[in-house]
Design a binder for these strands. Structure first.
Lengths: 108, 108
DNA sequence: CATATATTTCGATAAAATTGGAAATATGAA
DNA sequence: TTCATATTTCCAATTTTATCGAAATATATG
């Protein structure tokens, strides 16, 4: 992961509505949610939601698939773990100050 | 962790300079870094750096201690893990779609 | 085709974040 | 006290983001 990618992800999640959207969709997993579902659950105007969904897809935090008239948004949860690893990369110069399993197991 | 805290952390990290500052300080661990070190390493004007450091401390990502004329900034790496857990909370409704150890071990 | 539902794009406005020079504050040393 | 170093605060211009009504696009159905 590069600096720029991380920033895109962080900014995408650093917004009240988008954070709510993402966490709801994470909980649904592969079932996913449509914009209609989200408008109902969150009470955001459709145009506003659409703007935010675009940001999340752009950051690769959500994946979208059309199913007839509906769009289905699903989470890319792995990206969150990749982000976490990136942020703590080479923490404390490599000394195990934090038991960060993943950064040891999979060094990119 | 609450929604609002998460947003504060995400926005704090979602900026080129602040991300660089944080990752450098993470790598130093308890040794820490001073603003002077960072100005030199990153080439940011001191006023600008000071603004960014304040954001990171405000988000609780950095802890600061004065040592004579210097300030020493140190990382709060645990917060990154707490954030990651928050983002993936109850992922896929609890089914183990992602082997997310921490969210199973420590549910808050 | 005509109509209904689902969702996005446009565009103008409002709100928030970023920048950095200059001045101020804090600490230490001569 | 005076000077030097370290760092912050102030502030106003600039840039970036967010908002959402209204119109446009896509798909399905009668």
């Amino acid at each position: 992961m590069k600096n720029k990618d991380a920033i895109t992800v962080l900014l995408a999640l650093g917004h009240e509505s988008r954070l709510n959207v993402f966490r709801l969709i994470v909980q649904r997993g592969d079932v996913g949610l449509t914009p209609g579902d989200l408008v109902e659950k969150l009470g955001i105007p459709n145009a506003t939601l659409s703007f935010h969904l675009k940001e999340l897809v752009n950051a690769d935090l959500l994946v979208v698939e059309r199913q007839s008239r509906h769009l289905i948004y699903r989470p890319n949860a792995q990206l969150v773990e990749a982000l976490s690893d990136f942020l703590l990369d080479n923490c404390c110069g490599g000394k195990s100050c934090i038991p960060n399993k993943s950064s040891i197991a999979s060094s990119k």
